[in-house]
Amino acid sequence: MSILSQAYTWINLKFLLEGLGVTLEVSLISIVLSFVIGLLLGVIRYVGIKYFSAIVGFIIDIIRNLPLLLIIFFTYFALPKTGLRMSPLSASIAALVVFESAMLAEIVRSGIIAVDPGQMEGARANGMTYWQAMWYIILPQALLKMIPPLVSQFISLIKDTSLATIIVLPELLYRAQIIYGQDTRYMLPMYFMIAVMYFIVCFALSLVAKRMEKKFG
């Protein structure tokens, strides 16, 4: 028992909670940026601009099929060789955004496909241009359909942020390691505590996703 009370001092818990704050901050910034970029890429891929869409689609496929860890390494350890300098915080966000926007582009594309194709024709028959129909008729419906997978993707992102511990981003897992690095008896209590923290955040979000799925699905 005494080990637990030593491990879970307020100082240590506060140190961890600040780490959870960093995790959530990085995830939130990344999901917002990835959503914007992913939306753009998904639409580009869907509409089929000659060559351009194919190239964009192809780059998306490459990024989607690489391990995120490799993208993090590449961003932080290899890109500086080209003159692009980043702190661990911005490198983490950049790597997550590159990876997530490729994932979201696919979600956007399938969301658009899932909207009845007859609607585009109907809108155009009523005098709308292609882009007007896309913006006012197709995208709003596609976005509603995308909300549940978007939330799931956000959950993945929160979990994936833990990989950035390797480039010394002071997030939750990194801080747990700092604490048990000073006294290795805290290892089990620390892993238990951060597992609980991740679980609470991600599980709560997954409940939200389920509820939305019922509402919009």
């Binding site: 959950i155 979990k159 994936d160 833990s162 990989l163 511990t165 897992l173 290892m187 089990l188 892993y191 951060i194 597992a195 991740y198 679980f199 991600c202 599980f203 997954s206």
Partner: peptide, 23 residues
């Protein structure tokens, strides 16, 4: 299902690497 879906893979893996061997 909910437990293993909602905890990062890295945390699960580290747990097996450093905690399980001790106990």
């Amino acid at each position: 299902i909910e437990i293993f879906r909602n905890i990062p893979l890295l945390v699960i893996t580290m747990f097996f690497y450093v905690v399980i061997p001790q106990y």
